[in-house]
């Protein structure tokens, strides 16, 4: 997954307050540590804004992993073969695992799991907009692996060096597993491309629908990015949105050639002078629409997530009651 929403602030984020004198000293010391590339650990002193920024970023990231299970889970029961079904099951299970690594990392900053989930379920917290797009065909599952997870990897590899230790360590685990996600996606698409005309057309249609939303995953242009400056200073963000997006486009053009699909951008051309591919303008109106709740599946995704949580409430309560009873018996 999926770190685009990082740059989307929460409405209830309080404006930063100037630190008192002794805190100013601590803050300067903290900044120096970050500048020296040191890691910050959970119980270390940290500025309120650093803590808040990380809670927002890590929890948005966690929510994205969890909501990201929905569009793919949609196809588990309809995968075209047992092989593809077991692969997809493993992948969706990984997404759940990634969400859990990240929730655990966010909790080290002093926020509870319940608070994080409540923020998601009430719509206060964001998750990556990419999951507000539908998966109407089997080719969508391959394209999610190839392009969505491919974009996620670009975003996530630099986070393995994030200044906050628990987040960096979670990202190392995630990146190790994410490569399987991208490769199984490419493999699935490659199989379809060697099939019938109808199968090739299905892959092309999916690529056409996902290409632009995937480019949006890298977040707004650097000049419009709200959190970038302090995030860079604190070693939370290491490479800018535009730089990552460019890297992704350059890598993907070659992969698309191997696959034999076109990318739906007439402006996409090699620029020898820059040594990069130029590409067309991104429709930021669509991006902000989806971020603000008006994408094709926003309501459906959130409703499914809330329902799963509510339906599981009795299980959580029963397990807790059982554990209390066992403990009481052991004490007696």
């Amino acid at each position: 997954m999926y770190t685009q929403a990082m740059d989307v602030p929460n409405a209830d984020d309080a404006p930063s307050v100037a630190a008192p004198a002794n805190e100013a000293e601590a803050a300067a010391h903290f900044d120096a540590r970050c500048a020296a590339g040191e890691y910050v650990e959970a119980k270390d002193w940290m500025p309120d804004n650093y803590r808040k920024t990380l809670i927002r970023q890590i929890s948005q990231h966690a929510h994205s992993e969890i909501v990201g299970m929905l569009p793919e889970g949609n196809w588990i029961s309809r995968a075209p073969s047992l092989k593809r079904k077991t692969i997809l099951l493993a992948k969706v299970q990984d997404e759940g695992g990634h969400g859990l690594y990240l929730y655990a990392a966010a909790e080290t900053l002093g926020v509870s799991r319940d608070e994080l989930l409540t923020a998601l379920h009430t719509g206060r917290a964001k998750y990556s907009s990419i999951f507000n797009y539908p998966t109407p065909t089997w080719a969508d599952i391959g394209v999610i692996g190839w392009l969505v997870d491919g974009a996620a990897i670009m975003n996530q590899v630099p986070l393995c060096r994030c200044s906050y230790g628990p987040y960096a360590r979670a990202m190392v685990r995630i990146c190790r597993e994410e490569s399987f996600h991208q490769r199984q996606g490419f493999d699935s698409l490659q199989t379809m491309m060697q099939g019938t005309d109808a199968q090739r057309a299905m892959v092309q249609d999916a690529v056409n629908r996902w290409w632009w939303p995937v480019l949006m995953m890298f977040g707004p242009h650097d000049k419009d990015s709200q959190h970038s400056e302090t995030s860079t200073k604190w070693g939370i963000k290491r490479i800018s949105n535009d730089e990552l997006r460019q890297k992704f486009v350059d890598a993907t053009v070659e992969q698309a050639k191997v696959l034999g699909v076109g990318l739906p951008d007439p402006a996409l051309t090699w620029n020898a002078e820059r040594g990069h591919h130029d590409f067309g303008a991104i429709d930021w109106t669509e991006f902000w629409n989806v971020v603000n709740g008006h994408g094709p599946c926003n309501r459906e995704r959130l409703a499914a997530k809330v329902k799963a949580h509510d339906d599981g409430a009795w299980v959580r309560e029963a397990a807790l009651a059982f554990s209390a009873k066992q403990a009481a018996r052991a004490a007696a």
Binding site: Y101, A104, A170, A319, L320, F322, Q326, A327
Partner: peptide, 12 residues
């Protein structure tokens, strides 16, 4: 150490 989990008891 590799992370943490929530669970009602040791077995889970």
């Amino acid at each position: 150490h590799c992370g943490s989990v929530h669970a009602p008891d040791a077995t889970m």
